[in-house]
Design a protein around this nucleic acid. Sequence first.
DNA 1: GAAACGATGGGATACGGTTTCCGCAAGGCG
DNA 2: CGCCTTGCGGAAACCGTATCCCATCGTTTC
Lengths: 362, 362
Amino acid sequence: MSQRKAAGDVGRATIRDVAERAGVSVASVSRVLSGNYPVSEDLRRRVMKVVRDLDYVTNAHARSLAGGGTPTVAILINNITGAAFAHVARGVEGAAALRGWLSLVGTTGDDPERELALVNMMRQQGVAAVVLLGGAYDYDEYQLRMARFARSLDAAGSHLVLVGRPPLEGDVPATTVDYDNEGGAYAMASHLLSAGHRRVLVLPGPAELTTAQGRLRGAERAFEAYGVPFDPGMVRHGPYDDEHGYSAVETALHETPDFTAVLAGTDVVAAGAMQALRAAGLRVPEDVSIVGYDDIPLASQLTPQLTTVHVPYEEMGRVALRAVADRREGGAGRRKGTDGDHLVLGTHVVVRNSVQPPVTRR
Amino acid sequence: MSQRKAAGDVGRATIRDVAERAGVSVASVSRVLSGNYPVSEDLRRRVMKVVRDLDYVTNAHARSLAGGGTPTVAILINNITGAAFAHVARGVEGAAALRGWLSLVGTTGDDPERELALVNMMRQQGVAAVVLLGGAYDYDEYQLRMARFARSLDAAGSHLVLVGRPPLEGDVPATTVDYDNEGGAYAMASHLLSAGHRRVLVLPGPAELTTAQGRLRGAERAFEAYGVPFDPGMVRHGPYDDEHGYSAVETALHETPDFTAVLAGTDVVAAGAMQALRAAGLRVPEDVSIVGYDDIPLASQLTPQLTTVHVPYEEMGRVALRAVADRREGGAGRRKGTDGDHLVLGTHVVVRNSVQPPVTRR
DNA sequence: GAAACGATGGGATACGGTTTCCGCAAGGCG
DNA sequence: CGCCTTGCGGAAACCGTATCCCATCGTTTC
């Protein structure tokens, strides 16, 4: 089993092969390729010819070992299938590509364990930054582990960026790019209340997810501001998917059928809710109004088009990448000074056709 | 600017640091960590303690340089926002994670140039395989370049997998995982024809995309089989997005308003078409029937729920990964023999509520 | 015409691990 | 009691590239 340098070796060509074949030193080849050192035209031509002949490409691992290499951002996403996250990822990727950075997407499958494992894996890859997408889990232990990762990434010269979740507590070296989650929910609920709705079915999402908590809080605050008593019995937690929207409405129609509007924690949940109402013979928005959250493309494709809260997901992705890029430029200079560690982007209600003033029913 | 080993060095810890601090040799540390060599319990304990203290992780680049390292699959996707591709990606990632492989997603932004650039970049990364998602462009030059990449990936010990597009012509070392694209379109069109529709607006997608071509061909064959003349004037090409669906229907309502059904090349296009019909005061499916293609979640969230062609996207992703994994196991043994280079998965029509027999209109 | 200098190319070394080859100590057996 | 295994730790040789330092050669200047 001779491993090395068989005559007709099938492995990839190395810089040494190129050098040998061109009759020059490896240093010269490296210089021709990286271009940061003057080389004679003759040498360049000779080397490039061999490079083409051998179809040589430099080994990225070796390059980054030797100090060079392209900065890479890792994007950790719960579910590649989620439209909102996909938009953030696109924002990050676009901004990364602009700077010649590489980006890498990992999927956690909604599993906190896997998320932590991936962060670790990224650390091994020596990425410039890890961007974590989506709501955090509100367990103490989870938060603690996250903080530990932030510190250890920082120690390794990398950096943690949290997108779409609240910042970590305490003095943790992480950047957060967030949006006005609670404010959006407040505005959305106000929209419903000002249309005259009083009995509102609230489907905020999973109870342990920080985004769901914020959206619920925003709704509560709106009720308070309007002087309308908030009935906790009208809140139904559950996953961010259309099945939950469907089943929650189905159950509610039996248990508390007097609601005139549904405040969904997500456009997808709203879509499920809409199906359930229709299956029960109710019209939207004539009989029941519905609003969503996120403003993913689906929102405008539903019938009726969904009134929802617009979240600047793609912009958040761009901002997140810019944050880590800037921090890199700043370098050792002002490491601590201008932390600017918590950026918050605005949200706003997009009014479409899924809300009408309530009518007495049944 | 002293680079190396300052006392309070902030860089990541190396295996040498661990060895020194534990009072053992680097070899011992490596053995403890990789676990493929017997070590005494005492040694293991000592090393592990230091590893924890220093929060050490092995450098993935160095490891893969030295021959070890985790196999990595690169997934190249046109648009991370496209639901169908996202499902394939999820399939690949799931199967990869199962084997302990890493996966990496790159986005081409529908730009053939960038796609080729990314393939090259992946080659540098030394990935085990490159999975290319989505329809190919039907330019000769493009196909040729793809073939070249397939060969050069193969020469570098990697492998190209084409998913959801027809195989490359000639003797090219690439695996193709495809679905019965034309057959699905045939079945879908037949469904419409057997319901009695004769004047059908066809929105296959971009003319230069192979998937769109296949879907159009399937439809034509169905018309032929039913003995119904196929009117090329009813075909409108355009991008795979809802805007195209909307504007195409809008125009068609002026130019050829006698159609009783829309055969969309994609569920998203169907969604756009549905909006346009409704904006024109037409009901779906009472006045006009609509069918889509892909069966992404959107299809069942629309009102009415969309009759469409189910494509096993996630399964395709899994199959694709299995194909490269198997090929790796097979190793040098039977490199050429069992090529099994072209796998085709079945499609089927999913009947929902967007089709009705036609009624005379206007 | 010689010395100083700029432009280039080559050799050696570092990057952070893995792995092979050795050597030493302990244990088993005759 | 001595010799031969067996087990485990240490030194060194790579993996493929970038870069530092030095040698060389052709110019330019005094």
